[in-house]
Design a protein around this nucleic acid. Structure first.
Length: 259
DNA sequence: CCAGACGTTGTT
DNA sequence: GTCTGG
DNA sequence: CCAGACGTTGTT
DNA sequence: GTCTGG
């Protein structure tokens, strides 16, 4: 599951260096990031249901940073109502079925992207309370999620909607430990790609129909991640969209659990 | 064949 | 307890 | 997914 | 656009 993420502006320039090795590409990406910075709001925490604009690199323009709304709207949507209703249910896409589900099939084959984030949140449930953990890269590098994108034009207004979804897979050991909830059978996590996997994910030109290169990428992240509890993301005591949202915050009642 | 759905997480 | 909104 | 509401009649 | 249910 991946419904809450962080993606703050200060880190955005750093993202450029992770997308490219060539200094010329890095410069190009940084320049473009400055241009689109007005639409790249800093998110220390943001929920998928708010459909924020996320920083993506698509297979069509692998070195062009773009802002796509979170919650995929398929190109065949027939009305704004239908499109909005759909986007509530396409915040995530199950990696196991992206090549078969009608909503994702075309995107899985032709419209893949990288979604950049500082980290994501997952809840640990204890005593009927939900304790949010922030999960991030040990060195503070961006986490790069496997994403799908699509474009839909509202025929009644002519407005173009560029949207994306984050692909999920089964949880790795760390996320299994965090994502504990009574009755929960299968914990999940976003697909996080390393450098070489990112390049493969964006390679849709070789054989568009061949999923055998892509399916091996849809697995739990095996490198190290860091996790710590943070203040509640929502509700009266929540710090809201501020740096405090991702700062470590201890819950005394969890101290003895060894979490 | 047409009409209508097309999804996730977590749930029973 | 259960549904809805975000 | 979690947080918060969950109702009526009639009022400002 | 593409799949499923009837």
């Amino acid at each position: 599951m991946c419904y809450d993420i962080a993606s703050a502006t200060l880190a955005k320039l750093k993202y450029a260096q992770h997308r490219a090795d060539d200094p010329e590409y890095i410069k190009q990406i940084e320049d473009e990031l400055k241009k689109i910075s007005a639409s790249l709001h800093p998110y220390y925490t943001v929920n998928g249901f708010a459909h924020p604009g996320l920083l993506v690199f698509t297979n069509h323009q692998p070195y062009l940073p773009q802002v796509f709304s979170w919650g995929l709207i398929p190109s065949w949507s027939r009305s704004l109502d239908e499109a909005i209703a759909c986007s509530q249910l396409t915040i995530n896409a199950r990696g196991e079925t992206i090549f078969t589900k009608p909503t994702f099939k075309q995107s899985a084959r032709f419209k893949r992207c990288l979604v950049y984030a500082d980290g994501f949140f997952e809840y640990f449930h204890f005593n009927k309370q939900a304790y949010p953990f922030f999960i991030k890269h040990p060195l503070g590098d961006p986490l790069i999620f496997a994403g799908l994108w699509d474009e839909w034009v509202d025929q009644s207004t002519g407005v173009l909607y560029q949207t994306c979804t984050i692909v999920t897979t089964v949880a790795n050991p760390l996320l299994k430990k965090i994502h504990v909830k009574p009755g929960l059978e299968e914990a999940r996590m976003p697909v996080i790609l390393n450098k070489s996997e990112q390049d493969i994910w964006l390679q849709t030109s070789i054989d568009e129909q061949d999923s055998s290169l892509i399916n091996p990428l849809l697995k739990p992240y095996s490198d190290q991640l860091l996790a710590h509890t943070v203040k509640k993301l929502k509700g009266k005591q929540a710090p809201g969209n501020s740096p405090e949202a991702i700062m470590p915050f201890e819950y005394p009642e969890l101290a003895l659990l060894g979490i």
